[in-house]
Each structure stands twice: as C-alpha cells, then as structure tokens.
Nucleic acid binder design. Sequence first.
DNA 1: CAGTGGTCTAGACCACCTG
DNA 2: AGGTGGTCTAGACCACTGC
Lengths: 243, 243
Amino acid sequence: MPEKPLTIKELVEQITKGIQSKSLIDSNGKLPSEKELMHSFSVSRYAVRQALSQLGERGTIYQTHGVGSFVRQDDSLQASKLRNNIGLRDELLDVQLDLETVTASQKGLTAAEAEFLPTNYQLAPETPLIEVIRYRSLDGKPYQVEKSYYLKSLIQRIPEQELFHSIFAYVEMSVGTKIGFIDKVIRCDLLEEKQATFFGLDSGDPALVERDDTYLSSGKLLAFSKICYDYRQAELYLSKKIY
Amino acid sequence: MPEKPLTIKELVEQITKGIQSKSLIDSNGKLPSEKELMHSFSVSRYAVRQALSQLGERGTIYQTHGVGSFVRQDDSLQASKLRNNIGLRDELLDVQLDLETVTASQKGLTAAEAEFLPTNYQLAPETPLIEVIRYRSLDGKPYQVEKSYYLKSLIQRIPEQELFHSIFAYVEMSVGTKIGFIDKVIRCDLLEEKQATFFGLDSGDPALVERDDTYLSSGKLLAFSKICYDYRQAELYLSKKIY
DNA sequence: CAGTGGTCTAGACCACCTG
DNA sequence: AGGTGGTCTAGACCACTGC
C-alpha cells in the first residue's frame, strides 16, 4: 500500500526531529547524503534539497560542496538564548521558552493617533487600527513591553483570551492566510518611565528596541509593532547565509 | 551562435538591475511571470525560481501564489538606512554607504588573550589569532568601533592597506574559499571609555553591540568580532521570510 | 475559466573534496 | 576514482487568485 508522500514541510519536521534525537546524524554531526535521504524518506531529490535549504536558512545545518551536510551549533550553548523571536510556528518550539503575558489591553484607534507608523509602508491617517499593549515576562522576570497595531480591515477584534497567547497564530487561523515575511529594525534607545518601572530600571537607562512590520503572504500589511526589551536579558540571535 | 546560459548568480544580478532601473517592473511593482522570465533570459524555470527565491530571502521581492512576483519597499525610505551590514559582496552595493575606516591596527595573540570568544564554537586557548581594531565613520561621523579576531591558521597576516577596505573580500580571495554564513548576536550594552570618546558620548551611555561569528562555506570558523555602534545613528535592518 | 506560483518527478552533467 | 553537493533541463500536476 503506497504511503502518501511527505510534503516539504513535513520533511523539514522529520529531519529536524532526527537531528534533535540524534538518530539521523553520526558522531560528527554529519547528515546522510541527499541520495540516502531521498530513499529513506521516499521523496525526490528536489524535495530533499528544498528541505535542506530551509534548514540552512534557519541556521540549523550547512552544506559543503563535495563533502556533505552538517548540523550546526551545540544545543547546550543555544538553549539559554532567544534563538529567534519570531513568536510563531515551529521555530519557537525548538527552544522551550516560558514567555508569559502579564498584562494585556486593546483599544481601537486610527493611524493618525498611533505612536508610530510602519517603517516601509504608506498608511492613510484614517486607517482603523487595534492597539494592543502587552507586558511580558520570561521565566518569571519582566522581559519585554510590546505595543502593536493590527489593521482592523483584516482582524475586527481580538478575543481577550488570545491576547495572552500567540496573536499571530489566531490571526492566521481567523483570516485564513499565512504570514509571509517580517521586516525588522533593531536599535538601541533610552527607556521611558513606564517600561523602566516594569523592568526595575530607571528612565534614561538603555533599551533594546525592535520595530516589526508583519505582512501576510499576500503582501498585505497585517500589523506593526514596537517591542522594548530589558537590555540586561535580551539577545537577538540570527544566522545569515551568504550567497 | 548560442549564448552561454546565465548562472543563477548572474540571473540574480540581471533581475536586480532590471528592478533598480525599473525596466523589468510595471507601475505596480509587478515582475514578469516566471514563464516570461524563462523566455526573456533563456533559462529554465528552475533557474528563475532559484533566483527569485534568493531575492525573496533578501527581502527584495515577494511572491504570491496565483498572483505574481512583486518588488518590495520604496527605495526612497530605505536609502538612508543601513540595510544589512554584512560588509561584503553585492548586498552592500544596493545602498551606497560611505563607511570609512579612520584608524586601524592589528597584532597577533592567542585565544586565551582575546577579550571574548566565539558564541557557538569551542576554541583551544592556544589558538593563534590576529586581532584587528578599527574605528569607522559613516558620512564623516564616528559610527562604529570594531574588534575582530581572525584565525591565523587561515590568514597569516593582513596587509596594512587591506585594513582600510573589506577584510572579508581580501580573505576570500586569499584563501580561495567563500564565506558561507554569519551568526549574529545583537544586544544593548553600556559604553566603555574608549568608544564613548570616539562617539562623543559618555561612558555608561547605551551602545548597540553586534557579535558576529563568520564561517567559510566549508564550515570552518574564519573570524569572530564585536562591533559597537553609536546608538543614535545605528539601525540594523533585516527581513525575515516565514515558512 | 485562464494564468499564476508551488510542488514534484526523473533524469543529466558539472564542480568539488577525499582517499 | 568515487561520492558529494550544485546546477540544470523538460516536463507534469496541483493550489490559489482573479475575472
């Protein structure tokens, strides 16, 4: 009885599991060759290469021409880091985080009343938005303050309980479209009063600030946000492949 | 007489040029379909998709299923930003930067004497390194202080004049291997005396700090560095595709 | 419905590294 | 020389979007 072939997404999951359980790698962190992966998962080389390419973009593995595919990073060192604060889907599952929303509130307003606007996108002043403010702790310690604006044209209201979970996951389900890409601008700034007291710091102390613009895969802007981190705890980690 | 077909890399360049000159896009920023690109560049669909995929990773374009490929971002807004401080190859050419090295020095030492070590890599204490310190200005204003350690096993010495240009480009040429990926850790810290005076700030003021570990495409560690930015000027921009 | 991008197959040849 | 990943071809069918 022929099995239904794995999709590329499932293949990525399978390989990731095999890496985590070390069942797929040898003692040097070497993965099987593409040919072997084709046969053991019963997929085409195209599927294998797409999957390995995605794992490469994530920084999970790298491939060396004429040699093979290798796993990167010692998990022991990575475990304590915020590997990629995307906050959605599989990537967050790699590292178990205890990111808890302590306080959350929402209200409606227009773009003209927003504290900031998208970095790279023209928005009419009368555009209706939902403003969400969340105070969040990591492992019980105050960690970030997030202010986000969602386009009301895409999401009319956010159920209260969802404010304490992944809003993106809720929106993806609700509008039936996946998130396609996120533009990030990272800078360093001075803390304001409110955030400072939450972190137990003084206003004027440094803060790591991240501005995100989140787009659906259709190219439509979904939300834009500003996340302010306790600079003593926050480290943004990313891996970049060079072509 | 048949032309030699374009490589994927050349195709990426051609499409990028066509986008910049606006000769390849319509008034809505829409690119030709993959089929049309195949014919106009005389390449296979595979090559077209690889090229568009790389442009997608860079955040230059996005593709929407059933609709088409579109260019992202208004150049006008991007021009003033540090789009991606990779410091090598084509990406830096997108944005014209006047990043000038003001002071540079190098000396040899061992890993045990280094101020910091790679984030994600075990290095024997006796490993010989070259330490490079550079003070750099952007458009004439003090902008960053960089301290880098290069593995002496890969690069014996760096000619003085190269210190004022792209060291990575020199190393790539010298060892004949390309850079494969860079791990980055970004955080916010307090300025030390030396950097502070260069920026015209006080010690204890905030600083945006970037730790880079640079690997060759063979997976070998090439260098690790710490870049300290004037927080009033620096913004790190990145675009992240979600799968 | 037609046209788009997304997935997939089954090959082929090339470029690179190691023994 | 043999095995690896990198490039490439020429198809096929599916899934999605828009009219």
